[in-house]
Design a protein around this nucleic acid. Structure first.
Length: 576
RNA sequence: GGGCGCGUAGCUCAAUGGUCAGAGCAGGGCGCUCAUAACGCCUUGGUUGGGGGUUCGAGUCCCUCCGCGCCUACCA
């Protein structure tokens, strides 16, 4: 048994996430967590909402709510959707928690003591009407290069030229449209991660088997241009972790908060502390996952995220943890493996939150149960390149894989048994060569499935799982119990006894992908033995003759052409 | 502009430099009748984006061209 710490990138608080977000971090993390638990490992699976930053404040303002209230509500909404998709977090925290406030300030203080924090004064655009400093992209104006009138302060989307906000002609606030802008001086804390460049470089080099996507992005940031740059870790905002606090090794930061990308990853740790609090446990309960001097030395830590999050997880967060251990006093657990994902596109374009294009988590659950989405998304996870969602492909995959191959197998076996032997595992007969061959084939594919799951090769694992389902149909076709029943009912009984146990076998191994269907199947079988099959032969004898079961409801109803067309039209345009 | 990646069957995707480039779906044929008109077997389909090179051997390595995507440090 191993101890495995799993974190999913934190979903941002300002709205409901779409399926592209889901498949890029939370869903594959859940798959892995469920698999690890099923194999008997001790798992800590952590996620949280990322609640700080300008977009959260603006979303709250738009909703006419105080930001704290808005975040509290949206956190509940996201937590409910996570439950809807059966995301099995041990704790779903909030980056605005007291635990995160305390830990963020603690780590910042340690970094200050290590000499890794500097103060830099810089000029930023301030909007008088909005009463706030504006991030570059919240300033709009005419592009000095191409004349596009809605160019953003960081880059013109029309001609792709990178800009400084002060270069824009007729600049205005993208929030209010106000042109009452001025350049003001402001001081901020910077994380001197440039001094850790070599350390980070060596650390990344020492990792083996990381996805190319992960290492190439990290290397780019480490070596591009002048190399890794120091990064501002504070902002002029109200909502967040105050950068000025008792015992801080600096002055003059009153009214400022830490930048979200400083405090968000720290929330992985803080959320584990929130978990311990919720369980009524002491600090040692979470420290044994995060401090290698306090029990975490045998922990394997795996992170899941979309490619846009890679720089923060390969560089700034490790820099924070390494820096905080400058004197060897606080050895924090660093990540062992980063599984990163490309993007999922929607029917020829991108999912778009602003344009309401694509399917969002709440809408998805309104039209179909979670398992349908879990299966399609995971079996098409964008591991090697961006992948694409189309309704035709979704309908075809779900109908064929779930309804025909798996669902119909359960149906044909249980109904045949009910009509010929009644609703109990039949007795009599013996295994023959065909049954032994099936057991061997199942075991071979099961080992391959396990290998892919352990390597987090998600699409390959899904393919192997499907192939395992197919073996059942092949066996049934060859064994033909409907024929043997007429001549040798004992033989048919042995075949069906095996087939019923095979259904349980499928429920157990499929549970990480389709937990609800697995539950429903086990309930119908009246079986509570979820033990992972070590040997196929023994696993196929779990339910003995005489064990009562019932025929389950149809596990997966098919998606009709009419439904598909309806949804395709409905989700093409604006949300709602 | 710079960097990274991708381009393989109608579709979605596989293939440590090494048999005839594979699988699922879709298409075609046959079989079965337990089952959600489901299942099984067989089968059609490719100049691996174009061109050049290295090699005994290239989907894979190098160069070049075409097309697409992502990142480029103040969105998170």
């Amino acid at each position: 048994m191993a101890r495995i710490l799993i974190t999913s990138a934190l979903p941002y608080i300002n709205g409901i996430k779409h399926l592209g977000n889901l498949v890029g971090s939370q869903l594959p993390a859940d798959l892995f967590a469920r698999y690890c638990r099923a194999r008997g490992h001790e798992v800590m699976f952590i996620c949280a909402t990322d609640e700080h930053g300008t977009p959260a404040e603006l979303a709250a303002a738009k909703a006419g709510q105080p930001v704290a209230e808005y975040c509290a509500e949206m956190h509940l909404v996201q937590a409910e959707l996570a439950r809807g998709f059966r995301l099995s977090f041990d704790h779903f925290g909030r980056s605005s928690s007291q635990r995160n406030h305390a830990l963020t300030q603690h780590l910042a203080k340690r970094l200050g003591e290590a000499g890794l924090i500097s103060q830099i004064s810089e000029k930023q655009v301030y909007s008088v009407a909005d009463n706030r400093f504006l991030p570059d992209r919240y300033i709009e104006g005419t592009c000095p290069n191409c004349g596009y009138e809605r160019a953003r302060g960081d880059q013109c989307e029309e001609c792709t030229k990178q800009l400084e906000p002060t270069e824009l002609i007729n600049p205005r606030s993208a929030i209010s449209g106000s042109t009452d802008l001025e350049v003001r001086e402001t001081r901020h804390l910077f994380l001197r991660q440039s001094t850790l460049r070599e350390t980070l470089d060596k650390w990344i080099d020492s990792q083996t088997g990381w996805p190319v996507l992960t290492t190439s992005i990290a290397k780019k940031w480490l070596h591009d241009g002048d190399g890794l740059q120091d990064r501002g870790i504070t902002r002029d905002l109200d909502w967040g972790v105050p950068a000025q606090f008792e015992g801080a090794p600096w002055q003059g930061m009153a009214g400022k908060v830490f930048y979200v990308w400083f405090d968000a990853p720290i929330e992985y740790i803080a959320a584990t502390a929130e978990w311990a609090d919720a369980q009524g446990l002491g600090d040692d309960a979470w420290q044994r996952w995060w401090r290698t001097d306090l029990g975490a030395d045998d922990v394997r830590y795996v992170q899941f995220m979309g490619k846009d999050n890679v720089p923060f997880h390969t560089l700034s967060f490790p820099a924070t943890l390494i820096g905080a251990n400058f004197d060897g006093g606080e050895p924090w657990k660093l990540v062992d493996y980063i599984k990163s994902f490309n993007y999922l596109n929607y029917d020829g374009g991108q999912f778009s939150t602003s344009q309401g294009r694509g399917v969002f988590m709440d809408q998805a659950l309104e039209i179909l149960p979670a398992d349908y989405w879990r299966w399609w998304l995971l079996s098409h996870a964008p591991e090697n390149s961006d992948s694409e969602f189309t309704w035709e492909n979704f309908q075809a995959s779900v109908n064929k894989d779930l309804a025909d191959v798996l669902g119909n197998f359960v149906s044909r076996v249980t109904k045949f048994c009910r009509s010929k032997f009644g609703e109990a595992v039949p007795e009599g007969g013996e295994w023959g060569a065909r049954e032994a061959a099936l057991a061997a084939a199942l075991e071979g594919r099961l080992r391959a499935y396990e290998k892919h799951m352990e390597a987090m090769e998600i699409r390959k694992a899904a393919g192997e799982l499907r192939a395992l389902w197919v073996l059942g149909n092949e066996y049934l076709q060859e064994a033909a119990p409907w024929a043997s029943f007429k001549t040798e009912p004992e033989q048919a009984a042995a075949q069906i006894r095996l087939a019923l146990n095979l259904i349980r076998f499928y429920a157990v191994i499929s549970q990480p992908f389709i937990p609800d269907a697995a539950q429903a199947t086990m309930r119908a079988l009246g079986c509570e033995d979820w033990s992972w099959p070590e040997g196929a032969e023994a696993a196929l004898a779990t339910m003995p003759a005489g064990h009562a079961f019932s025929v389950p409801e149809v596990l997966f109803a098919k998606i009709s052409d009419a439904q598909r067309e309806d949804w395709a039209a409905h989700f093409a345009g604006a949300r709602g």
